[in-house]
Design a protein around this nucleic acid. Structure first.
Lengths: 295, 295
DNA sequence: GCATAAGGATCAGGATATCTTATCAATATA
DNA sequence: TATATTGATAAGATATCCTGATCCTTATGC
């Protein structure tokens, strides 16, 4: 069996042209080195060093082997360097999944902070619906997921990050006093605009509004919050907007945001990972970082 | 210390996603494999495999390490393949030095025969004067030399290949009977044209002609046999030509070749290598091949 | 709930492999 | 001819690695 050690010893010989000095370099006795070289030659069925009473000489094949060995040892070193790099806390690759109603609003805050604090971290991002994220997390295609809690899978760990209050977005043409706190009755009879099936925000809105009272045409099914808001601005109806989206989305003065009366409805955003994941520590740190950027 | 074994075992795990099966593939017991994986992880300071009661999963870093390990093992295999290739008789690299008065005439015959008989052999050729060749041979920059014997260095082995008779090249305008065998007296008073200093052919010619009698302007000093022959053709004098050059050089009917009377003068061409060289066998085979192409 | 199965971790003991020290053999140098 | 240099060899100590038995945890079946 060819070994790493043999190559290392041989390279020392090739550099020093001297068994004794080579042995010193690799910190073993000269016989130990001689034996490894002998084993290597036997292994390869090839004479690598021409021994010559007073001096030695590397054969042409030996030089070729040395070139290849050098390449191999260099890659070995690269591998170790990579590992060392990846081993430092919050470094290496983390595959993060985020739900669509969160990604565009939280990532622009999170990524710069992460890069600054953990320059060795490489985030692979994926944005899709909660069900897929959880499935991929359990399957091992993702490492950690940012979504609305609860997920409540026994094999998954979940920690809360922040409470994201819901706001009501209405057309500014409605001339409603912005200081008024919306109550359950105020949604009665409104045309409630929603994201398409599968979005947790849709389900949360429906269950919240279901508690308030039945609404009419809830079957809009937009593919993004931006789309829904364009419809609100155009006067097609109202929608429920997570507060975290407000800064980014409401540059449009045709929309007015209204706060609900206490207890304000909200979603709880949290970080989720496999309990068995070896980097739980890192995900806790990631959670702290997230809390910082969301206040 | 990182070892190849660890990488091999880890790759098996990475492929099988199962310690038991991986152990079977690499022909060790499962605990042995587990321990190597553990050592590898400790060595790298990195968790490569996420153990999970019922199944295992390779971490993202593990996948990266696996990719690198794969590359390393592949190059290792290449190295072994190269060695195996180079180990077969007369294969691999041989650095051959040849003197200038031989190279252009013998190599066109030798190389095709070698390629046919030993397709795995790679000849690195060098053409220069005997003194340099011997020096480089002793220094290890060359493996084997084709030159005129004797060299008589105690550390060098020399075997004769063939006897290369000298012919006399004269201008055809001299109208000499080609069947006449030249004797010592016939060179008397001729303008003897020679190669420049350092060529063994020059020394051999001079010592031979010195034995016959002194000549006039021997100080021509051409850089190649072709040049000397052009001068002969132009009527500037005569020269002594090794028989092996005759076929190639004499397409010129302005030159007539004359054979010397017995005992014909000649040079002995031989193959020379270091006695300590590990490929003496190969050089013997090379010598046989050379004898075949020179009859 | 309990028993069973699956799968990896751990442990003890023995087999291998590797190292060190001392010594040898060959050759160059004074 | 004596001495120094240099790689090879031998013997014993040490470290490493493997095997087989067993343990621990978790999922599955009754």
């Amino acid at each position: 069996m060819l070994t790493f050690k043999q190559l290392r010893y041989f390279l020392a010989v090739q550099q020093h042209h001297h068994f004794g000095n080579a042995a010193e370099e690799v910190c073993v006795s000269q016989p130990a080195l001689s034996m490894q070289i002998r084993d290597l030659e036997k292994e390869l069925g090839l004479c690598l060093v021409e021994r010559n009473a007073r001096s030695i000489r590397i054969t042409p094949e030996g030089e070729e082997i040395a070139r290849r060995a050098n390449q191999i040892l260099r890659e070995m070193q690269d591998l170790k360097d990579y590992a060392k790099h990846a081993a430092s806390p919050l470094s290496g690759i983390i595959r993060l999944g985020v739900i669509p109603s969160l990604a565009p609003y939280i990532l622009p805050k999170l990524l710069p902070a992460l890069i600054k604090q953990y320059p060795d971290l490489q985030l692979n991002l994926r944005e899709t619906l909660t069900a897929s994220l959880v499935s991929e997390l359990k399957h091992g295609t993702l490492d950690v997921v940012l979504a609305a809690l609860p997920i409540e899978e026994p094999e998954l760990e979940e920690v809360p990050i922040f409470e994201d209050h819901f706001l009501l977005a209405v057309s500014s043409s409605r001339k409603i006093d912005e200081r008024k706190r919306m109550g359950p009755d105020d949604l009665h009879g409104e045309n409630l605009l929603l994201l398409e099936e599968g979005h947790c925000l849709r389900d949360q809105t429906l269950s919240f509004c279901g508690a308030i009272g039945q609404n009419q045409s809830a079957n809009v099914g937009a593919t993004s919050i931006a789309t829904v808001l364009h419809m609100v601005a155009a006067g097609y109806g109202v929608t429920v907007l997570p507060e975290i989206c407000a800064d980014t989305e409401i540059a449009d003065d045709r929309i007015t945001l209204l706060r609900f009366a206490e207890p304000q409805p909200s979603r709880r955003i949290g970080l989720i990972w496999r309990k068995t994941s070896p980097k739980s520590e890192d995900y806790m740190a990631l959670a702290r970082c997230l809390r910082n950027v969301t206040n």
